[in-house]
Write a protein that binds this DNA or RNA. Structure first.
Length: 824
RNA sequence: GCCGGAGUGGCGGAAUUGGCAGACGCACGGGACUUAAAAUCCCGCGAUCCUUACCGAUCGUACCGGUUCGACCCCGGUCUCCGGCACCA
């Protein structure tokens, strides 16, 4: 140990030792309790940013602490390495996506190693490797065999700039989440996964406690995304026709207020209904207009309602009244039945439509609100209330009318109860090269047939052109497409689209449990030993997509008998962003601080310490150069302390706490040990854990310069200080540990036990309040009786001054804390 | 529009079950050491007032009100900021 803290040297030295001794290699060990600590794996962009540092520092503290606390810890890392940027690099710079990606992976691994993260690198998984995507294809085929994958022509979200299809989840504000180009609808034949089959289970587990270790916020977001609503489907006959229009409504109670019907422009029978009539041309014009709108225009809630009458009338099954049928783009084909009943008095959208087209507005619910005149509505009234103008249900409360009407509809064969979801099936086809090829083959005779499992992987061809336009690049391969049908042996063609990369990341946490298995995706026993992930850590931006897809995959694999658990992540921590000057770090603002410059200037330990100390993990963190300086200062302060103590040579021996100063030091030591355990192991408050260690350091500084020093106690305090500091700043801890003659590696020490007795002081401070205001503080023996405490409080001189000539009404005594006198 | 979350010194933040508001750190100010500076160490640091000083007093956790012996914490209302969803019938 040098006198000066040479962080670069120290960090290199210990990274090498850990590597050589293989201290983070992990094996299944049924005799030990396991702990699976997982951080979301990165996309290999090539450069680590502060968000990564935060994410992985948090995970590393938890993993290292759990290991020291006796758990068998699985802490793996890998790369989510398929995806668009690699392909863009190919288009822009002519580098093959594979080369670009693998070089980036190599660079990022190196940067991660420099942070001193306790990963078992033997378990590394890269989703773009053949050994990984082979099993991705295998899993896809199992989904297909179970009827959970299907191909269908549908209007899909199309990004005109990326020239590819997007999942609903990848459309943000009507635009492509990646390039922000407004998305348009396009009819394409695409592969889907039937996540809607699991909508109920995905939802049930949010409520039944299976996800109680998740932030409430994330559970709510998923719940809203699945969007279950209970309602009723009602059949409306079309006048002078055999056609029946089924609508979905959550408010059957308002059915007497229906004055018109609206169909989505894409509704399948619209064209045949207007064929050869005077309405045909206006309807065609309208549909054409809608088709040329992008998603932003189409879904704008502020735009005025538009639509056209199609010349037909529907008959309300309850009132037998005739009502005109319109098409309008405010009705979506993708939700419910694509047809709605228009109840303008009680639905704002219907109200706007009726106002625009001069349609009748019939109120059927009176909310009993003096400010609402139901016969002269300025806007729709969605509140519940008393039914009016509604035949036999008039006078009923609208909340009671809903179940009543559903039962009536079912009894009379007019409709039935129905549950609807906002959740759509997951569109997974991508017209892209750098992804897992969808292992399906089209045969004129047999239709779609999966590739034989023994032929997997279906390799990505290398003889393709990257233009960034049009069809999937794989289609340009002269060798890939043509093949023979695995079923009949006849000529056939391969699917040329690749999978959405979200599939790759939906099961990587399972592959980590058995990463080199060449026979199957993973051994069930191994997965069942390690799963669930005990702590998952990542950005909140994955609250819906990745986290729901992973839940879906795990459920399906569970149903296939491949995985014991059905929920993958027991506990979830979503870390906040790293900002600078209150704004997101970004190149265009020019406020980016790179991990590189911080590691060079202060070392990885300082970077880790600052990022953990500056804010609780869930909150946004504002980068502060002065704060980093402070963290560095703290580390050098600890380093100097240990250097000095070592140079003095403290006697070993039995620790006997004698003086008041001994007790104070011993208290702080035990308090810190306990506090760090609680804050790292349970509360995830790394900032307060670190502050308690800082207090301990301050206390040791105070203690060491006294005349009379209890050497065994000071020695113990110094050694345990190093140990509890090590999960946060592992390199400097190893260096100091070696210096104080610690046996073995610091990171392999057991977490020190704290002594509960030393946390109970013989004398405690009691607050004495008068009418809730602190007026005095008393130091009393810890086991003082209530009566004695009250006596002491009343006897205090200060208190007597305040109570002089006043009457004491009441005395509230909280043992160990305070006495409050109520005085008048 | 709907659903969440947050609001505490100059700043990041602490107060874990309703019981001393401001731990720890940053910034700042003062002092020691030094020829000097840096580094380091020590002291101070919410506001206002009183006092020569010590001692002390009043106010203070976005705002208004309530419950309670006692409220940053619980309840009702208001404002502001942030996040998610959004023509979902």
């Amino acid at each position: 140990m040098k006198e000066r803290y040479e962080f670069t040297e120290v960090e290199k030295k210990w990274q090498k030792v850990w590597e050589e001794q293989g201290v983070f290699k992990t094996e299944e060990d049924p005799s030990k309790e396991k702990f699976y600590c997982l951080e979301m794996f990165p996309y290999p962009s090539g450069k680590l940013h502060m968000g990564h540092v935060r994410n992985y520092s948090i995970g590393d503290v938890v993993a290292r602490f759990k290991k020291m606390d006796g758990y068998n810890v699985l802490h793996p890392m890998g790369f989510d390495s398929f995806g668009l940027p690699a392909e863009n690099a190919a288009i822009e710079h002519g580098i093959h996506p594979s080369k670009w990606t693998w070089e980036n992976i190599h660079d990022m691994e190196e940067q991660l190693r420099e942070l001193g993260l306790s990963y078992d690198w033997d378990r590394e998984c890269c989703t773009c490797s053949e050994e990984y995507y082979r099993w991705m294809q295998w899993i896809f085929i199992q989904f297909y065999k179970r009827g959970l994958a299907y191909k269908k022509e549908n209007p899909v979200n199309w990004c005109p700039s990326c020239q590819t299809v997007l999942a609903n989840e990848q459309v943000v504000d009507g635009a492509c989440e990646r390039c922000h180009t407004p998305v348009v609808k396009k009819n394409l034949s695409q592969w889907y996964l039937k996540i809607t089959d699991y909508a109920d289970r995905l939802l049930e587990n949010i409520d039944n406690g299976a996800l109680d270790g998740w932030p409430e916020k994330v559970r709510l977001m998923q719940k809203n995304w699945i969007g279950r609503s209970y309602g009723c489907e009602v059949d409306f006959k079309v006048k002078d026709s055999d056609e029946v229009l089924t609508v979905f409504t959550t408010r059957v109670d308002t059915i007497y207020g229906t004055t018109f019907m609206v169909l989505a422009p894409e509704y399948p029978t619209v064209l045949e209904n207007v064929k050869g009539t005077e309405y045909e041309q206006p309807v065609l014009d309208y549909i054409d207009r809608v088709n040329h709108m992008n998603e932003i225009e189409r879904t704008s809630t502020t735009a005025e309602k538009t639509g056209v009458f199609i010349g037909k009338y529907a008959i309300n099954p309850f009132t037998h009244k005739e009502m005109p049928i319109f098409i309008s783009d405010y009705v979506l084909m993708g939700y419910g039945t694509g047809a709605v009943m228009g109840v303008p008095a009680h639905d704002q959208r219907d109200f706007e439509f009726a106002t625009k087209f001069g349609l009748e507005i019939t109120p059927v619910v009176d909310p009993g609100d003096p400010e609402v005149d139901v016969n002269d509505l300025k806007q729709a009234c969605a509140a519940s209330g008393t039914m009016i103008n509604s035949g036999e249900i008039t006078g009923m409360n609208s909340n009671d009318a809903i179940p009543y009407m559903i039962e009536k509809a079912e009894r009379e064969g007019l409709g039935h109860r129905k549950v609807n979801y906002k959740l759509r099936d997951w569109l997974i086809s991508r017209q892209r090269y750098w992804g897992t090829p969808i292992p399906m083959i089209y045969c004129e005779t047999c239709g779609w047939v999966p590739e034989k499992e023994e032929n997997l992987p279906v390799l990505l061809p290398t003889d393709v052109k990257f233009t960034g336009k049009g069809e999937s690049p794989i289609a340009t391969s002269p060798t890939f497409r043509k093949c023979t049908c695995p079923k009949c042996g006849g000529p056939a063609e391969r699917e040329v689209d690749t999978m959405d990369t979200f599939l790759d990341s939906s099961w990587y946490f399972l592959r980590y449990c058995d990463p080199r298995n060449a026979e199957k995706p993973f051994e069930k026993e191994k997965v069942d030993y390690w799963m669930q992930v005990d702590q998952y850590i990542g950005g909140v931006e994955h609250a819906i997509l990745h986290l729901m897809y992973s839940r879906f995959f795990t459920m399906v694999l569970h149903d296939m008998g491949m995985v014991g658990v059905e929920e993958p992540f027991a506990n979830l921590l979503t870390q906040g962003m790293v900002n600078k000057d209150g704004r997101k770090m970004s190149k265009s603002i020019g406020n980016v601080v790179t991990p590189r410059e911080i590691i060079d200037k202060y070392g990885a330990d300082t970077a880790r310490l600052f990022i953990l100390f500056a804010a609780p993990p869930e909150k946004e963190l504002d980068w502060s150069d002065a704060g980093v300086e402070g963290s560095f200062r703290f580390l050098t302060r600890v380093y100097r302390l240990i250097y000095e103590l070592k140079s003095r040579g403290l006697k070993d021996g039995e620790v006997v706490v004698k003086t008041a100063e001994d007790r104070a030091l011993n208290y702080k030591l035990n308090f810190a040990i306990k506090k760090v355990r609680e804050d790292v192991g349970g509360r995830f408050m790394f900032n307060t854990a670190i502050s308690s260690i800082m207090e301990l350091v301050n206390e040791i500084y105070k203690y060491k310069d006294q005349k009379e020093i209890n050497e065994p106690l000071l020695r113990k305090a110094a050694r345990e200080l190093i140990v509890i500091l090590s999960p946060f700043v592992p390199h400097i801890a190893e260096e100091m540990w070696e210096h104080v003659g610690g046996e073995g590696l610091c990171c392999l020490q057991s977490w020190p036990a704290f002594d509960e007795k030393s946390l109970v002081l013989d004398e405690i401070e009691i607050v004495v309040q008068i009418n809730g205001k602190v007026r005095d503080k008393l130091v009393v023996p810890k086991d003082i009786s209530k009566q004695e405490l009250e006596q002491a409080a009343l006897g205090s001189e200060k208190i007597r001054e305040f109570t002089e000539g006043k009457e004491i009404f009441k005395v509230i005594t909280v043992p160990g804390k305070l006495v409050n006198l109520v005085v008048k």
